[in-house]
């Protein structure tokens, strides 16, 4: 029921977000153009204005949806698997690691695909974070976040170093935007990468979400239920790293989507992952579509990196989550 409502909201969000932008194109013209490209009728727009809809807005809105969905699912999975309500790809260093991988490829010209590099960076950062957290003793949420912070800082510093050594002229500006998280460059290839990641990693995760419930009472309890705890944990974490890496490679590191949306969805449908994961995906998609629409239209004709929008909304909510955990420190 909730699912159906949210799916409709997502569909409406895509439909309306593509009608918003600096140029005066009416919603009817926008939809006419989209229908034309789907093989129905003629476009009501000139070739150029049709390009605005089909080459700029639609791929951008679709990328926002996929990235939002991917990050929200990643966050929900990480929260389950680390039993840490504060986990998200951003706080645990995955995003920074993925950024480092991507920047290294972009600037140093290492010959691997951008999403692959981002994935490797994300995996490496995640491994380091968990290693560091476990070397502090029993893995607790706070320790994991602290370890993630340390890994993030390291990855960011190395990223800055790479930029320092390689940037020429004013090319730093675009990299900076990208580090802050921006969907300005999202075109159809970005849509392909993001949706491929959803299909290859996101969908299997969502379908097997029930297993995550078994982690509710910890590793021993999960093992007693017949779950191969280590293999399951690393499979899920690798899948989230793949998901995060792909998303970072198209959008830079957008923070807080993975952290706050699963919490919001839990309030709606409860904590069972079979429902939580798909709905987090849908709500994440809706959220990022509108955050990006705000990013590209509020300060028109200039635009804001969408990561700033999500941080402005997300950071206070993160603070609330922290204070609710006060007693446990």
């Amino acid at each position: 029921m909730t699912g159906a409502v949210l799916a409709v909201v997502l569909l409406l969000s895509v439909t309306f977000a593509i009608t918003i932008g600096p140029s005066n194109i009416t919603p009817v013209e926008v939809w006419g153009s989209v229908l034309h490209h789907l093989g129905l009728g003629d476009s009501p727009l000139s070739l150029l204005r049709d390009g605005i809809v089909w080459q700029l807005r639609l791929p951008r809105v679709l990328t926002a949806a996929a990235v939002g969905a991917g990050l929200a699912v990643s966050g929900a999975v990480m929260q389950a698997i680390t039993r840490n309500p504060l986990a998200d790809p951003y706080l645990l260093g995955l995003s920074s690691g993925a950024s480092l991988g991507a920047v290294a490829v972009l600037l140093l010209g290492i010959a691997i695909l951008l999403p692959v590099a981002a994935f490797l960076g994300a995996m490496l950062a995640l491994g380091l974070t968990l290693l560091l957290a476990s070397s502090l003793g029993r893995i607790t949420p706070s320790r994991t976040v602290l370890a993630g912070l340390a890994v993030s800082a390291l990855a960011s510093a190395i990223t800055s170093l790479v930029i320092f050594w390689t940037v020429t002229g004013d090319s730093y500006r675009e990299i900076l935007n990208w580090l802050l998280g921006s969907l300005a460059g999202a075109r159809w290839p970005a849509v392909e990468i993001a949706f491929a990641a959803i299909l290859l990693a996101g969908l299997p995760i969502m379908l097997s979400g029930r297993i995550l419930d078994a982690f509710a009472f910890g590793d021993t309890s999960a093992a007693a239920l017949g779950i191969n705890v280590n293999r399951t944990r690393w499979t899920f974490l690798a899948a989230t790293a793949l998901l995060t890496g792909a998303m970072v490679s198209v959008s830079g590191s957008i923070g807080f989507v993975g952290l706050i949306l699963p919490h919001a969805v839990r309030l709606l449908v409860g904590p069972r992952h079979r429902a939580l994961l798909p709905l987090s995906a849908v709500v994440g998609a809706i959220f990022l579509i509108w955050a990006d629409t705000a990013a590209r239209s509020v300060f028109e004709p200039r635009e804001l990196p969408v990561g700033i929008v999500t941080a402005i909304i997300g950071a206070p909510i993160f603070a609330i989550l922290l204070t609710r955990r006060r007693s446990e420190a």
Binding site: A153, I163, D170, Y172
Partner: peptide, 23 residues
Amino acid sequence: MSSLPRILAVGVIVAIGLSGCAT
């Protein structure tokens, strides 16, 4: 706390003096 990495990134770039007066 989470913006720290970003601040670091921005900081280094400002440090090399690439930023600021681009305009």
